[in-house]
Amino acid sequence: MSRAFDLVLYGLLIACALAVIRTKDLLAASIIFSTYSLILCLVWQLRGSPDVALTEAAVGAGVTTVLFLVAVARTSRRER
């Protein structure tokens, strides 16, 4: 059962990673990257590592995403 759930989570991770590099809108890509971090955080919580899951949620999904958003706001939003 949990094996199947792992497979679903890994599938979602890979789908998010592909979506991040396929999306032309950098704002949307940043938000998808935050989703990617949250799924990764869930994976680690299920592995018995709450410390790393907390860090990933705070740093990966929170601060890194905000920094990406600021950078997108200060530069250009569309990717050619």
Partner: peptide, 24 residues
Amino acid sequence: IGLYAIMVKGNLIKKLMGLNIMET
């Protein structure tokens, strides 16, 4: 996937996202 983004994408922010995916 991250390596692909770094090698193919021209946008620097996109490259950095690829680097972050590689790190994770």
